[in-house]
Amino acid sequence: MRKPYVQRQRADWWLRNPAYRRYMLREATALPLLFYTLLLMSGLYQFTRGEAAFLGWLELLRNPWLLALHGVALAAALFHAVTWIALVPKILVIDTDRLRVSPTVVKRLHQVGAVVCNVGLLLLVLLLVGGGR
């Protein structure tokens, strides 16, 4: 007699294995990054309303809650960057007869590129906005 027992996935499946928890944490980086993007949008909106409104938005950024959002978003962005670039060489395969780049090199190039771009952007903002001090 056959009577297979069908195992149904529980809604809390991801809590029961460290690999799944790490996956969910990776996916969860989207939440603070979405709120951060909305904050950027609000800055753009205030800019369209004129100088006073934009300066008000600048002052609003000192709000402790928004600073906390920045903190969480920074952690999320860093975790995202590390996990994202770790997966790039698995997807971006450069292996043709004319050009072959090893996965390790693909990963290193992305890591170096990400550090250069992130630090470069930060320095640019420091120079352009804080430069007059």
Binding site: N17, A19, Y23, L87, K90, I91
Partner: peptide
């Protein structure tokens, strides 16, 4: 999720 590649006993890397 990538766990398939972690558990593969033959290092096939299905996620990739």
């Amino acid at each position: 999720v990538g766990y398939c590649s972690q558990v593969c006993p033959k290092d096939v890397d299905p996620a990739a």
